[in-house]
Amino acid sequence: MPRYEYRCRTCDDTFELSRPMAESSAPAACPEGHQDTVKLLSAVAVGGTATATARSAAPASSGGGCCGGGCCG
């Protein structure tokens, strides 16, 4: 189940709730019981590095498109 982050406008506390995606926009009371809350936008970061094998396995561009077809400069 997805976790959503909210901020209480009354006490300025931030908190998370696990709830179905269909309820992500539903009002959420803060842990102190205040009702004036706002859902925060979350930035999801996926870390990791590509290995040399994975990079070399990508097919080379054979043209087409502006930067691959030589129409630039």
Results as ranks from 00 to 15, higher is better:
residue 54 A to D: 14
residue 52 A to K: 12
residue 38 V to K: 12
residue 65 G to T: 11
residue 39 K to Q: 13
residue 61 S to F: 04
residue 35 Q to M: 09
residue 61 S to T: 08
residue 60 A to D: 11
residue 51 T to D: 07
residue 30 C to S: 03
residue 43 A to K: 12
residue 59 P to A: 10
residue 31 P to I: 01
residue 55 R to W: 06
residue 55 R to Y: 07
residue 48 G to P: 01
residue 63 G to M: 02
residue 26 A to L: 11
residue 61 S to N: 13
residue 51 T to H: 02
residue 53 T to E: 15
residue 54 A to I: 08
residue 30 C to Q: 01
residue 58 A to P: 02
residue 44 V to T: 14
residue 56 S to K: 13
residue 47 G to D: 08
residue 42 S to P: 02
residue 55 R to V: 08
residue 50 A to D: 10
residue 64 G to L: 02
residue 57 A to V: 00
residue 39 K to T: 06
residue 57 A to Y: 01
residue 32 E to W: 07
residue 62 S to D: 08
residue 26 A to F: 08
residue 37 T to A: 05
residue 28 A to T: 01
residue 54 A to N: 12
residue 38 V to F: 09
residue 41 L to N: 12
residue 47 G to L: 14
residue 32 E to I: 04
residue 34 H to A: 07
residue 31 P to V: 02
residue 26 A to T: 09
residue 38 V to G: 09
residue 52 A to C: 05
residue 28 A to W: 01
residue 64 G to C: 06
residue 46 V to C: 09
residue 43 A to D: 10
residue 31 P to F: 02
residue 49 T to P: 01
residue 60 A to C: 06
residue 58 A to G: 06
residue 51 T to R: 03
residue 43 A to H: 09
residue 30 C to W: 01
residue 36 D to F: 05
residue 50 A to L: 14
residue 26 A to V: 06
residue 43 A to I: 15
residue 39 K to L: 13
residue 59 P to R: 10
residue 40 L to P: 00
residue 50 A to E: 12
residue 47 G to V: 07
residue 47 G to F: 10
residue 64 G to Q: 04
residue 57 A to D: 09
residue 39 K to H: 06
residue 66 C to D: 10
residue 54 A to C: 09
residue 65 G to N: 09
residue 54 A to V: 10
residue 32 E to A: 15
residue 45 A to Q: 11
residue 57 A to E: 08
residue 65 G to K: 08
residue 30 C to Y: 00
residue 54 A to G: 08
residue 42 S to R: 13
residue 49 T to S: 15
residue 53 T to G: 12
residue 34 H to N: 10
